[in-house]
Design a protein around this nucleic acid. Structure first.
Lengths: 234, 234
DNA sequence: ATTTTCGAAATGTGATCACAAAAATAATTA
DNA sequence: TAATTATTTTTGTGATCACATTTCGAAAAT
């Protein structure tokens, strides 16, 4: 339960307890600091963040609806185990979803936002050079989020975040067993396409970014990683 | 609050109270029996289904994470208002998502399941002939759900259901103001493509089914409907 | 008649408690 | 020693209560 102490996540006042619990657990799962199969207890979490079962349960319910957690028949709650099949499904869905999100963002993009994207990308390169995987990962997410949320009607972003949430635990495993995550940078390509308002090119850049990035894991490599992490690959 | 009395939804034993509340509210929203803008009170719902605030709150949290409900700054919870822009966004996402879901289902489809799809389609035609919109709607959903869930790795279905949930209230409005919903039937087309295991043809059928079905609403018609229903179209 | 102010009712939130089921530990038996 | 049973502890669940905020309605003032 010590993992929860990570990333204290300052709590803005006005934020409810269940919301705070949700944010904190969400973050922990997204960066993979909770191991799949590890079962979470409501009371344990409540104690760890000095609150009571009620708001924690609400947070867990939300996370289970977001696909980040799974409730077993025993009523126990855990981070879903990853399998090679599920991984493949998640990555292909991510590709389709984010290409679409990118396309729908193009008509609403502003030069200011493109500049912001360039800054984020620069910071990410910096982090990669420093071999700071965690920061690079967060900046990568921020890049994609900033792009897609140019669209004022936000129906896609929650689903994209759900995918990230489900991929998080695997990234955690990968970061433990691989010295250096391989980061591709198709972001400059995306930025150039955005300046031209070229939907197809933007989508192509996003597709490449995903398929060469997290999608680049070979099936054998995935199964090997999962085995190493003590996950049954049934 | 009387809407909640609809569709009593028998409760299998072993089902928790919050789960029951979730199912019941979900159903009510999906078929559009809760009007957008109508605010839901925790105590009111709890009383209506003879339980207490705690499990109802959990159900509402889940539904808000599923995009079915929206929590305002006032902490009040309501069914999101529909706008023409949001509607367009939802429909285009639905098309992309379901085409992908269909493709990923094809490799796992069995003849038995295709037969089941044919039966569902037949029942739906029957319902349409009877002008029983509600049943036809449910059977249509069951058709799509049965198709996509041929894939054993279920990561897409929850997102598809989330879209349906968000479109639900609009369908409710449409069914109130339009005498007869116009149902297209590209299902036989999809079934034929499935028998040949032709992914492209299946995706094309789904795309047509959606674009000619709910996607067939013209923007002007949507705005008109929303105006009729007393929704501000700002 | 319209607006403002004040008080009462309603509402969201979270802590606590009681209960039942499940898990873990101890005790007993083969 | 290994397996089984019994007991204790832990855990999820949901009802209830107290508190703070908001909403609503009536009374008062402009």
């Amino acid at each position: 339960m010590g993992n929860l102490a990570l990333e204290p996540l300052d709590r803005p006042d006005g934020m409810t307890t269940h919301e705070y619990a949700h944010r904190r657990l969400r973050q922990a799962i997204m960066v993979g600091s909770i191991r799949p199969g590890e079962s979470l207890t409501i009371r344990g979490i409540a104690e760890a963040m000095e609150s009571s079962p009620t708001p924690v349960r609400e947070a867990l319910r939300r996370l289970s609806s977001e696909g980040a957690l799974r409730v077993l028949d025993n009523r126990r709650i855990m981070v879903p185990r990853m399998t090679a099949d599920r991984f493949g499904e998640l990555v292909s869905l991510r590709s389709v979803l984010e290409q679409h999100a990118a396309r729908r963002a193009v008509p609403h993009i502003t030069e200011r936002r493109i500049d912001r994207l360039a800054e984020i990308d620069k910071a990410q390169d910096e982090a990669i050079r420093r071999k700071d995987n965690a920061t690079a990962l967060l900046l990568n997410q921020e890049f994609h989020r900033t792009l897609y949320s140019a669209n004022p009607e936000q129906v896609i972003m929650p689903m994209v975040e759900s995918i990230w949430l489900q991929l998080g635990p695997f990234l955690g495993i990968a970061m433990e067993h691989v010295a250096q995550l391989y980061f591709v940078d198709r972001h400059v390509e995306a930025i150039e396409a955005l300046r031209k308002r070229d939907e197809d090119a933007v989508a192509a850049a996003i597709k490449a970014d995903i398929s060469e990035g997290i999608g680049g894991f070979e099936r054998a490599a995935i199964e090997n990683l999962l085995r190493l992490a003590g996950q049954s690959v049934t």
